[in-house]
Design a protein around this nucleic acid. Structure first.
Lengths: 230, 230
DNA sequence: GTAATTCTTTACAAAATCTTTATGCCGCTA
DNA sequence: TAGCGGCATAAAGATTTTGTAAAGAATTAC
């Protein structure tokens, strides 16, 4: 029997665990609850869930520590729960390998959407050379980006950005991550370049660059490419 | 009914046949097993598989003999399975017409990747000797390039460039790749030659060399030949 | 051996790309 | 509502990359 639709929820607030159990249960997931960090780690190891929901504000142990430990032996998608105005912790968690985050108080529908998006993303083979998203397409073997099947003229920096976004659809990429990937480990202070280049690629792919559909800003955190149905 | 996604596996070890059956089966292939060389040959003849996986260490018959016999009447892609440290056999097999090889113990993911790569490769007609693109045409067997059906006078270096571009239409060829292909693995620092020769061939094929339609520059990356409708 | 062809190298101009600066916007908070 | 921080965008300046002509070197053909 395979581990199907299991979700491990690590949160000290029984209120939240209860809500998640009910809501996600109704969506067909089997929710396994853990109230403490250690307990959660063991549960993830034993149950091999499809996804983990981890509250950063655990009492007995820092949520980041839990995250780090799980990441030493598992690539299971992890969604962070965090209070608003703690962008710092969110960024740290994402840089440590968390896949996504939701701020409390959270909207249930959005959490479910995020869960599904992350399951979808991790189930996709990461070696395909053509990736389609809405009007957009990247052909990695040809190093070309298309909108409406028309080739876009992209510089190498812009291409690098597209590449990272297409390979991580629906995932937040932090400023740090993007800066490091593109400009190397040095330029990590200022994200000025990044803004300019994000503007640049939006101009090329968005119908209305001021209200982007593809490249979404997560203020204080980073950017993400949204999956649009084709 | 067409022979779709069929793979013939010729291997005396039932263990390996089993693993391949399960793994490749999960990837959507229909695996036909053969434990002996003769049996395998017959099976390839009867089933017209998309690809053959052949163990070189067969008991009743030398794997190389099986390979040779299949090659007398079929061009089906053949991937060799071979124990490590038998480079001699691998080279012989490749010279006899094998398409690729994987050493035992093998990584399943890699084998699958090789299978796909070989199927992809053989499905595209890359062996055609005449390739047309817009006003241009190359005849590889005659080593000639035409524009508007008129022969162009091309030097051997220029021809090499044309050859690479025609064989990779719409694909960006990096400076490095082109330099290595044409000048060997040594000259990798400077791409000065390349620029001169690109200018050279543009002068011969472009109506307006300053605004090229065929050979496009990807600044910082390389050049590519664009596909133009004929 | 000489001429013609092709390849390599140099030098400079032109174009493309990247970086920086400046300015304005938006949402939030005091 | 004024001020602040993070973000978007245009545009100027700096830098890198590319295009092209032309001269010298090497190779090939006769």
């Amino acid at each position: 029997m395979t581990a199907q639709n299991k979700i491990v929820v690590i949160d000290d607030e029984s209120q939240i665990r209860k809500i998640l159990s009910i809501t996600l249960g109704a969506e067909g997931f089997k929710v396994i609850e853990a109230s403490k960090g250690k307990e959660g780690i063991v549960s993830v190891a034993n149950n091999h869930p499809q996804i983990v929901i981890l509250d950063l504000g655990l009492p007995d142990e820092d949520g980041l520590t839990v995250l780090k430990e799980i990441r030493t032996w598992s690539n299971v998608p992890i969604i962070i729960l965090s209070v608003r105005n703690s962008e710092d912790d969110i960024v740290k968690a994402l840089d440590l390998g968390a896949d996504d985050y939701v701020t409390k108080p959270f909207n249930t529908a959005e959490l479910i959407a995020r869960i599904r998006a992350n399951i979808r993303r991790t189930q996709q083979p990461d070696n395909q050379s053509v990736i389609v998203n809405g009007d957009l397409k990247i052909d990695i073997s040809k190093r070309l980006v298309y909108k409406n099947n028309e080739e876009l003229k992209v510089t190498s920096t812009e291409y690098m950005l597209f590449y990272l976004f297409f390979r991580n659809i629906d995932k937040v990429l932090t400023h740090n991550f993007l800066l490091k990937e593109i400009w190397g480990p040095v330029h990590t202070e200022d994200s000025q370049y990044l803004r300019v280049f994000i503007g640049q690629i939006r101009k090329k792919i968005e119908d209305d660059p001021a209200h982007p559909q593809y490249i979404i800003t997560d203020s204080g955190v980073g950017y993400r490419m949204k999956l649009l149905s084709n």
